[in-house]
């Protein structure tokens, strides 16, 4: 018993030494259960977010205003399916099956990014999502390319490379609208008003209220805290909005030279955390619709997946009979 404990103890030491030396952890290496669980939760949520994230934007594929925009949007939404897939595969290396993760998503047990529970009533929402939501996602994701877990880091490298056009695509849409007719400008501003606060909230609760941050940072799953990333995001977006003549819907937004350890940054208004928790708990504008759409797709696809498995079995049997 003692030896077993001692053995685990030395494995943990070895694991921590690897983390400290910035070595990657690979699927078959020893890892503490909490590390595995944290990763499964985080990668799973990330994958679900990509998959559910297809819906609000997919909504506009058939109505995109030009062929060029239609093709970019299709390519972008398709990328999201790909990213979901890479991430599910990364989670599978930790022993969690795709089927389990899918069931958890469909039953409402698993979480995904709340941002996708907001609606996309206009074309400008597609611009705002690309610019703000993908912008926020990139802030979150770039540090994850250096995450300590090998398969996750590799998936993120691929994802970040592919996502490089997503935010530009969104900003270009907003820029074109902002330069356009009064109706277009108005559409752009309204979309910015809708998406600003949800995007700021995307980085999660503030550090003081975040339960998972400490371990994640120590294990180098996460490299920055929620508030650090949020600050980076606000600092990046404010001048971009100014450049195209749109107004960030925050009257308390102002330059604060004390931020970012004295190098300066934007101070922003109070975040409505009640709304944040309300949407997470399922009471957002589109929670039910998003989940229902995924459930419908899955249920209507059951006969297809059944047939594919059955066909594979028949082929295998025929092959064995021939041998």
């Amino acid at each position: 018993m003692t030896t077993e404990l001692q053995k685990t103890g030395s494995l943990i030491k070895e694991f921590e030494a690897k983390i400290d030396q910035d070595e990657k952890i690979e699927p078959k290496d020893f890892m503490p259960e909490a590390y595995r669980k944290t990763l499964i939760r985080q990668i799973g949520q990330h994958a679900h977010s990509e998959v559910v994230g297809m819906l609000p934007e997919g909504n506009w594929i058939t109505r995109a205003p030009t062929l060029k925009r239609k093709l970019s949007l299709l390519a972008k939404v398709q990328d999201e399916a790909g990213h979901g897939l890479y991430l599910y595969c990364a989670a599978e290396t930790l022993g969690k099956s795709r089927m389990d993760m899918t069931q958890e998503l469909l039953s409402g047990k698993a979480k995904y990014s709340s941002i996708f529970n907001y609606p996309t009533p206009t074309w400008a929402d597609i611009g705002a999502i690309g610019w703000l939501v993908d912008g926020a996602a990139i802030m979150n994701q770039i540090p994850l390319c250096r995450c300590s877990y090998g398969p996750y880091a590799r998936a993120m490298i691929r994802i970040c490379k592919e996502e490089s056009f997503h935010q530009r695509q969104g900003y270009e849409i907003m820029l074109t609208l902002a330069k356009g007719t009064e109706a277009q400008k108005d559409m752009a501003q309204r979309a910015l008003n809708r998406w600003w606060w949800p995007s700021v909230m995307m980085f999660g609760p503030s550090d003081a209220d975040s339960t998972n941050t400490e371990d994640s940072v120590r294990w180098k799953i996460k490299r920055y805290t929620n508030d650090e990333l949020r600050q980076k995001f606000v600092d990046a977006i404010v001048p971009q909005a100014k450049k195209i003549g749109l107004t960030i819907p925050d009257r308390d937004l102002k330059w604060d030279k004390k931020r970012n350890k004295g190098t300066g940054g934007y101070a922003y208004g109070k975040i409505d955390w009640d709304e944040f928790w309300r949407v997470i708990k399922g009471d957002g504008p589109m929670n039910n619709e998003r989940l229902a759409a995924k459930q419908r797709a899955w249920n209507e696809g059951t006969w297809v997946r059944d047939a594919a498995r059955e066909h594979a079995l028949k082929k295998q049997a025929a092959l064995q009979a021939a041998e």
Binding site: R98, M99, Q103, L106, S107, Q295, N299, T302, R305, R309
Partner: peptide, 11 residues
């Protein structure tokens, strides 16, 4: 909700 389903192979 959804019925139990077998996972397809991973490649």
């Amino acid at each position: 909700m959804t019925k139990e389903e077998k996972e397809t192979c991973l490649w």
